Simulated assay, not measured.
Amino acid sequence: MKPRLICFDLEGPLSPQDNAYEVISLIPGGREFFEVISRYDDLLTLEEREGYEPGDTLALIAPFLIYHRITPEDIYNVSSTARIVDGAAELITHLREEGWNIRIISTSYSEHAYNIGAKLGVPPEDIACTELDLERIASDLGEDELELIADFWVVIQEKKDDEDSIMELLDRFFFKILPDTRYGNPLDRVKVIGGSRKVDAARKFAKDLGLTLGEIMVVGDSITDFKMLAAVRDAGGVAVAFNANMYALPYANFALATYDMRALDLLCCEFPDKSEMIKIASNWGKISKEFKGVDLTASQLHYLSKHDDNLLKEVASIHAEFRKAVRGRASILG
């Protein structure tokens, strides 16, 4: 029998905290700044900007973390407050007992990804995440670069409510001004594990086990996951959107809205028999109200046809409510 592999996005399916969002909130005005950058990330992704991957937000905020003297310890300390999504630890424990290989593929900085992984029993070698060496980057900068970053921070605070103006300013700062300094192109400084890099990570994890993308399951919820979800779905695998937004839902073949990740076990129990998985989704309202202690009346599972736009709109509305309840303020981020 072939090995079974499931790859989880971290922020959303395993932990509700958006770590970078919380880290930058240590800076006055940082939370609002991150929301602006997150919207910018969405726009660059949707326009398919060359060289840009969804989630590169975490590269764009690095200059400001350096200027405000945020440290790796700060990132870890913020992560230490993060909770685990209800049922996630129990789900992973049971899957491991059933012989599943568990991997995490996350845009998160390594301090957060490894911390959450440790809580779930997933070692660093089974996690693909974003490495951020703040000290090394800072050592390359002089007073001129720091003053430039400081000045731009002030401008962004003043312009943050003028979306058209601020998008133009961000373009100029990140891709014209910074590249002409010792900082260089911010996307070269930090390689974020998002978009196509998540696909690469999933493919590598699969290859290590002698599998293809069409033989694995992946779980994601946002714009950083849509390429991974699409790649696995289109290859014949199982792509699950969990409490997902409209950036992710159209690219999955299953959608799970739940407060308790143990509900995903119903699909996992039938993997890789996709016909049985589809039956479970199609008969969700008729199956037992409880599964291994999980109240299924508080969950909804759908099989997503690529061409059923009406169903997609209905599912998106359901997921929006679950997403808000589970992720809180972070639910507004792409």
Rank of each mutant, 00 (worst) to 15 (best):
G99C: 09
G99Y: 01
G99K: 03
G99W: 02
G99S: 06
W100R: 07
W100F: 12
I102Q: 07
R103S: 04
R103H: 12
R103E: 06
I105N: 11
S106P: 06
T107F: 00
T107Q: 06
T107R: 05
T107H: 00
T107A: 14
S108D: 06
S108P: 07
S108N: 15
Y109F: 15
Y109P: 11
Y109I: 14
S110T: 14
S110C: 11
E111S: 11
E111F: 03
H112K: 05
H112N: 06
H112E: 03
A113C: 06
Y114Q: 13
I116G: 03
I116F: 07
G117R: 02
A118I: 01
K119P: 02
K119W: 13
L120G: 11
P124T: 07
D126A: 10
D126N: 14
D126E: 10
D126S: 12
I127P: 08
A128D: 13
A128P: 13
C129L: 03
C129M: 00
C129T: 12
T130Y: 11
E131H: 15
E131R: 13
L132Q: 11
L132V: 15
L132I: 15
D133L: 04
D133A: 04
D133K: 10
L134V: 13
L134D: 08
I137M: 09
A138K: 14
L141C: 02
